[in-house]
C-alpha cells in the first residue's frame, strides 16, 4: 500500500534511520499491543492492560500510515513502468526475500496451530491458541500489515542512505 499525496507524488523522503525506527516500532508495538489487549486477566489490571495495548496498536498504525506515504513504500508498490532500473532490481530482490520471510512466518504459525491443537486434543499440553474473533482479527491484522510493509523493511535494512544533491 502506497498513499500518494499531492504534495509528495513520489512519496515523502524519510531518512533511512527514520524508516528503520518506524518499522521496528510497527513490528514491536502491534503484536505487544494485541497481546496486552487480549491478555486473559480480570479486574483493574484488565483495563490498564487493554488501554496500554490499545495505545500501542494506535502508535503502530500511525507508524504504518507514515510509512505508507514514504518514497521507500513507493518503490515497493509502484508499477514497474514507474521505476528506474536500480529501483526495479532492488524491489524485485526485496520482494523475493520478503516472500520467503512471510512464507516462513505463516508456515510456523500453521505448524504451531497444528501441534497445539493435537496436543490439546490428546490432553497433554494446553498451549494458547486463537479462539475468539478478536484473536483471529489481531492475527489477520498483523499479517496484513506485515504483507504491506515487509518488502519495504527488507529494503530499509539493506540500503545505504541515499544521496540526491
Amino acid at each position: 500500500m502506497f498513499i500518494r499525496s499531492k504534495a509528495h507524488p513520489y512519496g515523502r523522503m524519510l531518512s533511512i534511520e527514520t524508516v528503520r525506527l518506524l518499522m521496528i516500532l510497527l513490528y514491536l508495538f502491534y503484536p505487544l499491543g494485541c497481546i496486552l489487549q487480549l491478555a486473559p486477566v480480570s479486574g483493574d489490571a484488565e483495563k490498564w492492560l487493554a488501554g496500554g495495548g490499545l495505545l500501542m496498536v494506535v502508535a503502530a498504525l500511525i507508524a504504518f500510515a507514515v510509512l505508507a506515504g514514504s518514497s521507500l513504500q513507493r518503490q515497493v508498490q509502484e508499477p514497474e513502468s514507474e521505476l528506474d532500473e536500480r529501483e526495479s532490481s532492488e524491489r524485485n530482490r526485496a520482494a523475493f526475500q520478503a516472500h520467503s520471510v512471510f512464507s516462513a512466518i505463516v508456515l510456523m504459525g500453521v505448524l504451531y496451530m497444528m501441534l497445539t491443537t493435537d496436543m490439546a486434543e490428546a490432553g497433554k499440553l494446553d498451549l494458547w491458541r486463537p479462539v475468539t474473533g478478536a484473536h483471529w482479527n489481531a492475527i489477520f491484522g498483523g499479517l496484513i500489515l506485515l504483507s504491506f510493509t515487509l518488502p519495504g523493511a527488507v529494503l530499509a535494512f539493506r540500503k545505504a542512505p541515499p544521496a540526491e544533491a
Partner: peptide, 16 residues
C-alpha cells in the same frame, strides 16, 4: 538519462 536522482548517487558511490 531518465532515472531517479538517488540512482546517480548510488552509481557515484559504486553501490550500483
Amino acid at each position: 538519462v531518465g532515472v531517479n536522482p538517488q540512482t546517480i548517487g548510488y552509481l557515484e558511490r559504486g553501490d550500483y
